[in-house]
Each structure stands twice: as C-alpha cells, then as structure tokens.
Amino acid sequence: MSSGRGRICCPSHPDAPLVDDCHAGDQICSECGLVVGDRVVDVGSEWRTFSNEAGNADPSRVGGAENTLLNGTNLTTMIGPSTSGGGTSFNETGGAVYKNRQTMSSSDRTLVNAFKEISNMADRINLPRTIVDRANLLFKSVHDGKNLKGHSTDASASACLYIACRQEGVPRTFKEICAVSKIGKKEIGRCFKLILKALETSVEIIKTSDFMPRFCSNLGLPAIVQRNASHIGGKAVELDVVPGRSPISVAAAAIYMASHASENKLTKKEIGDIAGVADVTIRQSYELMYPRAAELFPSDFKLIISQLPQR
C-alpha cells in the first residue's frame, strides 16, 4: 500500500521498515507481517544446481567468468544431447548433427594452463589474489612478446610468481617457490633474469626485515625475540658486518643469535629448515656477526656475551 507521498508502506505502521521476500516476490511489514507489495524481482539464483546428482543434466546457463587476459575471451559453444527423447541431435546413422565448437586457440590454452599453475602454486603457500593477478599479467606480457621461447610454461609461471611476490612487497625465496613448483632453482632463476630484461621492469631489493616476521612466526618465537632479530639483522647490514651475504642467510643468523640470547634457543638446523638455508651458510654469517654482537643488539637489551655460542 502506498502513502500520500508515493512510498509503499504499511497502513498500520507507516514508519516500519519493509522486508523483501525475494522468493515469494512480496514486501512484508516487519512489525505486523502484512504483505504491502508484490512483484519484487528475485535477485537470487534461477535454480539450484546438483550436477553431481543429476548426471550430465546441468541447468546452468552460463560458464565461468570471462578472463580479459585471454585473446578469445574463452568463449565456447557446446551442443548437448537431446532431452526431448526424439534424437534430434543425431542423424539416422547415429552421428552428431551439430559439432561442438571450441574457439580457444593454442595461445589461449597455454595462458589458461599457466594461470592454473600460478593459482595452484599460490594456494600452496597462501598467497593473496593480488599477487596471483600480477603474476598472471606478467606471464601474459611475456607470452605475447614471445620472450621466453625454449623455456617451459611451468618455469615461466614460477618466475612470474616470484617476481610478483617481490613487486607486491611480500617476497618469497627461490627455495619456497621451488617447493611448490615442478621446476628447479636454476631454471627459475634464468627465466627470472630474462623476464626482468624483456619487460624492462625491476623488483625491490630484498631486506632481512622482509623475511623476519614469517620465519619467526613459523619457528614459534615470541615477539621480543622477533624484535631483537630484526634489529640485529638490520644493524648487521647497516654496519657492513656481513658483506656479500644474502639477506636470507643474514636473517637466519640474526634469528640464531637472538634465540640464544633468550630462553627460546634454536639450532641452526631448525632455523635452516624454515629459512631454506644450509647450516654451514648460517654458521658463516653468524661467525662474522659474533665479534660485534654487542653493537648489533638493541641498546635497551642486557646482553650477556657468554650466553652466545661462538659458532
């Protein structure tokens, strides 16, 4: 029912909000339940689909979402079997009258396979959708430019994911990407360099602080140890204590030093398994840092040097 102002409302409760019952197509007063309007458009699904229970009968009228990165926009025409029982889809010899037409080109098929591989790898290491989208865009650019001829799709996809992680500010190590990929570290590294050169793009230089929160969290270390480890790693780089050492090995050595200055002592192997760094690599970085340990810890931390192992 309408009020004098042309607004539909309940005559007994004009100020009460109305509830839309989309399935019944009614507008109902929330106070008394009176149906005050009808012909509401149902914005829900046209029907429920139980394709697994109904064999091949799937009433969905649409396919997957359109992917704008594909040249053919992944459109296909599929002719299903006749449902009327008259056999109109087949001729007298049993052959199909209509042919299913696949419009996806071999180029789009390569893109689809690469996008699927990137998505699968990202799922295994819990990467957000923004990184997947950036990796897909990178692969599309490389694929269209034909910059990685002779390299496998999986290697290119893995390198694009690695670059996307660094460009989005959440870098992953080569070993972490290799762990979820089918490709070795050397091949991914080669594709990584080629992609950066071909696309004339760059990545941010990785720092010890990029890995510290994730490594410490995976090792179950408390916040105070993480804070000390971050300070140690940053100070070691600032004072040029570990020249030529990778940020990952410096971060692992800083965690090793901070853990031994606390009650949460960890071995080099425990840290190396999480950081993807060999024990000897951690030891070499730690031996460079140990003589200047007093300078590396925060100023408010009471360090007892004798607590720290010499190697």
Rank of each mutant, 00 (worst) to 15 (best):
V203K: 00
A278Y: 02
S89L: 03
Q27S: 10
D273S: 10
K235N: 07
N136I: 10
F90K: 14
T267G: 09
A198Y: 03
A261H: 10
D279F: 00
W47Q: 09
I163H: 00
S249D: 02
K185M: 10
C160H: 04
G276K: 06
R124I: 05
N126Y: 09
H23Q: 14
V180S: 02
G95T: 11
G234R: 13
L219E: 05
Q284D: 13
E295A: 15
C22H: 14
S107F: 15
L296G: 08
P17Q: 02
L303W: 12
E200L: 06
Y98W: 13
F50S: 15
L138I: 13
I304W: 04
D123A: 14
P247F: 05
I8R: 07
G233A: 02
H13V: 11
R101E: 14
R39F: 03
A223D: 09
S156Q: 13
K149Q: 14
T93V: 06
A164S: 08
S230N: 12
E176Q: 15
I28G: 01
P247R: 10
S84I: 12
I224Q: 08
K265F: 04
K193A: 10
V225G: 00
S306K: 13
D42V: 00
L199F: 00
T77S: 07
A253M: 06
E117P: 06
D42I: 00
M78Y: 12
L303P: 09
K185C: 05
E263H: 09
Q27H: 07
G244Y: 03
